[in-house]
Amino acid sequence: MFKQKPGSRKDTVLPYLLILPMVLIIVGLVYYPVGRTIMTSFEAKDFTKPLQTGFVFLDNYKALLTDSTIWHSVTNTLYVLVLILVGTITLGIFTSLVLFKDSPIKGFVLAITILPWALPPIVNGLLWRGVFHPQFGIINKLLLELNIVETGIQWLSKPFLVLTIASLVVMWRTVPLASMVFLSALTAIPSDIYESAQMDGCNSVSAFRYITLPMLRPSIAIVLTLTSFVGVNLFDEIVSLTGFSGQTRTLLVEAYIRLFSFLNFGQGSAFVALIMLASAVPTYFYIRYLNAQVEYS
């Protein structure tokens, strides 16, 4: 058995032993596969054309960038991304303000706002599909009942509408996390700032504008970063709202099709490599956020 005293020479080996299992799994199951994917992206590897193999350098990338269906998935993802970023920030701040207020039902409101975050995204898509179903969805039933429309709206037939609804479904699970982050930031604002502002004749709207919002800025950055990852990686909700085929493919759905339906691993890998490249911007902010946290602790 280990008989070392803490702080002794053995301490130099111990930390490496402690992290070894984690490092092995991360290197073997994340770093090595990512490296292989990048290598494959420079190779011809199409299982429908098994005879053409070998190093082709940037051919896969060229083929992708001139393919119009790819650009379709790019614009689809960008549209969803903008909607969920704006929606998550505004609804998240709104929710956190509601949760911040002291009231006898505070715990209850917290429980129901957290709930959607915990649920499987793929199932969320199915439930929301029921809400927007043209024949028996509640939205159309209400619209018909109130005589706002004469025939039900085909919510899930136009790509633009599907993507908008998908954004709503994604926000359903991103808003809870955002509101928790904002809530903890709100709790950290000392209340005497508000008191002195009030004495200076500041009303609640300008207090929000000049005190709350600036104090929330770091948390807004965190939420924007985390929500961007959700947006770029959108997959489950699209699949459960409209399936794999269709014009509503997002980046990951398109990549999935190229890999597992077309079996073109070369192009699919190049596409995934491009998606990782696109994540570089939020990744940069994510690392900065992590480093800021280090100094903190």
């Binding site: 199951l29 596969p33 994917t37 990852f229 990686n233 890999l259 699919g268």
Partner: peptide, 25 residues
């Protein structure tokens, strides 16, 4: 220990890797 920060960031950064990037291999 030596390399602690590098390994720590090296672990945390894997958070941003999409599942499809590893799943083929």
């Amino acid at each position: 220990f030596k390399g602690r920060e590098v390994i720590r960031i090296g672990l945390l950064i894997t958070f941003v890797v999409p599942a499809l990037a590893t799943i083929i291999t």
